[in-house]
């Protein structure tokens, strides 16, 4: 089947079998390998991307379901060569060890912060229910997300 979508602001199209997962289309056909496949059982959240602005597990969606949608992956987060505040905060607060879960963590957190710009630590931890990290114990991930939230609130204020 022929599908077309917008990925990170760019119009793309491709020929896929209906059984192709969105993550397979992104990685294998578009070469966007920042979106990871960790578990293949819809539990780990390494594959989280945004579909029409909402976070989704791209291993639990068919590519054909995203036909006509706007998709944002981790590669689409940095603007003008400048890291997104979440990416910067993960760097500064050492919110990763091996880094495998990081793209999903950041895309999931970005969805949280667009809904709730000032989450409590508890709300951040609850939100990360669908993202597994097997290295760090989450502490620095949570710290990074709270720090990014603060930075982004400051940016929003400065823009007013």
């Amino acid at each position: 089947m022929r599908i077309s979508m917008t990925v990170n602001g760019r119009a793309v199209s491709g020929e896929v079998e209906p059984r192709t997962l969105l993550v397979e289309f992104l990685r294998n056909q578009l070469g966007l390998t920042g979106t990871h496949v960790g578990c293949d059982t819809s539990q780990c959240g390494c594959c989280v991307v945004h579909v029409d602005g909402v976070s989704a597990k791209s291993c639990t969606m068919l590519a054909v379901q995203a036909d006509g949608c706007s998709v944002t992956t981790i590669e689409g987060l940095a603007q003008g060569g400048k890291l997104h505040p979440l990416q910067q905060a993960f760097h500064e607060h050492h919110g990763l060890q091996c880094g495998f879960c990081t793209p999903g963590m950041i895309m999931s957190a970005a969805d949280l912060l667009q809904r709730n710009p000032d989450p409590t630590e508890h709300e951040v931890r609850e939100w990360l229910e669908g993202n597994l990290c097997r290295c760090t114990g989450y502490h620095n991930i949570v710290k990074a997300i709270l720090a990014a939230a603060q930075t982004m609130r400051g940016m929003a204020k400065a823009a007013e």
């Binding site: 819809s42 959240g45 989280v48 909402v54 976070s55 989704a56 597990k57 639990t60 969606m61 999931s108 969805d111 949280l112 939100w127 229910e129 669908g130 993202n131």
Partner: peptide
């Protein structure tokens, strides 16, 4: 139910 991404879909 589930986690945020499950609830989104």
């Amino acid at each position: 139910i589930g986690d945020p991404q499950v609830r989104n879909r």
